[in-house]
Design a protein around this nucleic acid. Sequence first.
DNA 1: GAGAGGCATGTTATCGGTAACTCTTCTCTC
DNA 2: GAGAGAAGAGTTACCGATAACATGCCTCTC
Lengths: 351, 351
Amino acid sequence: MGVTGHMPPQDASRGRSASIWDVARVAGVSQQTVSRVINGKARVSEATRAKVLQVIAELGYRPNRLAQTLAGGPVRSVTVLTSDTALYGAAATLRGMEEAARTAGFSVGISVLQPDSQQTDIALRLNRPGEPVMVIAYDDAGVRALRALPPDVPVAAAVERRADEGDAADGGPWQVWLDDRAAAAHATRYLLGLGHRTVHYVAIPSSTSPSPQRTQGWRDALRAADRPVPEPSHGGWTPRSGYLAVRSLLADRSVTAILCGNDDLALGVMRAAREAGRDIPGDLSVVGFDDAPPSAYLNPSLTTVRLDFEGLGRACFGLLHRRLEPQTAPPVPAWSEPELIVRESSGPAPA
Amino acid sequence: MGVTGHMPPQDASRGRSASIWDVARVAGVSQQTVSRVINGKARVSEATRAKVLQVIAELGYRPNRLAQTLAGGPVRSVTVLTSDTALYGAAATLRGMEEAARTAGFSVGISVLQPDSQQTDIALRLNRPGEPVMVIAYDDAGVRALRALPPDVPVAAAVERRADEGDAADGGPWQVWLDDRAAAAHATRYLLGLGHRTVHYVAIPSSTSPSPQRTQGWRDALRAADRPVPEPSHGGWTPRSGYLAVRSLLADRSVTAILCGNDDLALGVMRAAREAGRDIPGDLSVVGFDDAPPSAYLNPSLTTVRLDFEGLGRACFGLLHRRLEPQTAPPVPAWSEPELIVRESSGPAPA
DNA sequence: GAGAGGCATGTTATCGGTAACTCTTCTCTC
DNA sequence: GAGAGAAGAGTTACCGATAACATGCCTCTC
């Protein structure tokens, strides 16, 4: 009972792994029928389907995703563009994206942006023109990459701040973000409520200069309470940069509360405070941002704003999924609002 | 001056992005000639090459990597299998791999293993049968994934411990690792040299039970110095697990030195010590493993063993590259040996 | 001056699939 | 009993590239 139709071009049974043709030959059906079974399409008799599935199992056949995609099958891959995976926020967002994507059956590629990367090489990172992309755009490199993407690629992004309405170049509505501004304002109000005359701020580098969200929220709260607004210190992303940014500031004993752009900066600030002989929280309150895993165990443990980066990552993929398959994709999952976690590093202003 | 040969099957100039056929038509050459130019092959006149390159630039043409790979072009992608990207060691290794791979022109996919993932689904994560893979196998999930890989996939792995010679199932010689055992022994000797009677150990979960490398090194050093070997405490990967693992242990004042399987555990241990009223390093010396970025800024800053995970990741890719392209791949880059970084958390044994 | 050999290109086959169209059978309806 | 429809499966075209082989034209050698 041989197959009489079109035969596979290839000799078969050579070294390479089983293809759809091998399955078809062994099962005694056409290659197209195997394709139907793989994709769960209708119009295949139960008996044939069972036979094909059995042969697939016997041969250990796995469809070649590259070929599937090339041939116009449903899009099943996505590339994530991110800058520095050493940062907690970016790493946690990436985890959320990867998990959501894998759960939905997407394979995920990752490409790390260099701070100085030119926009022209972005398209080269994609496996094919039009491959869907997610961008983690918390910093300048990410934002530039987002802008540099060719218009034909479907993209969703996790951003610091929503793009201005109508600014389609930034991805339009396909963005998710956390309300950093409100969170920073909340943390600032919390410190003022403890009796601090004002709150100093050590800023992370921003993707949206000159008005980063966290800085704005901090300033909002100070102004609303009619307090003096000190010049923000400019840190980087690391403990070291926080340490350097506040060393001179700490000589001034009137500085009693410092809000930091992230937990790493807070770590450096606390070290600088220790070296300056300041007691935390007796002399000085320090509040971070992100709630990175170590923060609860620091000495003193760090009061910080918890941000749901993983949830944001999952939502970002959810958004992309709906963009790609509006009919079938599940609703975009919700993510948590920022939340102030009060620990040991903050307390009442010194008398 | 039209092309007379084989015409592209497609109508062209439709929505989709430019293909090699479009370039060929506009440049007035065959599609194969364009392919030659793209791949920098010989036998193309300078004039033709220039013309083709110009058209490529005009059309914004980018080769489709999927199609290139399918058609048997050089392998230019690799998938990384890792378990938990929240862990510093895994994340840093991944960074090194990604950087090296991208530099060599490979696109990298990432797939995160779940602790309970069955081996059967591993092959499904690959984009195609035979796609090269790197595995970060510091824990059990990673090691299982490594074992579960079909024999035909080219793999290189970063492991805790070299597979036994001859155990081809573990990837044979295509592995890189750090000498954790010697490093743990070194750290232990350092503590003994400070006058501590013995050293306690809080272990990370191991991929190679019952004899994890770090535990062995610690035990080696104690035995060589003829000291008592306490039962190691079993922690997880997180600060919390370190905290829980040593709470009871700390009631015993004769415990004056604790070596931890990683820096996160050390963080939890230091917190537990603080709550138990133990002074670090006065009453108790704590030494970590990994030298994660925050460790230098902790209070007290952490004495730890610096491990070159990024270098290891780069080397792992280098190894894979040589496996794939023995003729042309550059030599595998060297990575740094573990190094003890002495900071504030360790000191002389109490009198 | 003619065959040999190289160079620059064009043609055809193939990679491993999917989509659209076609071809048989049956079953159902009037 | 015949035509319509639908189910089940086969054929052919195509996705976007690379590899192997074929072809035309020139230059070189004897």
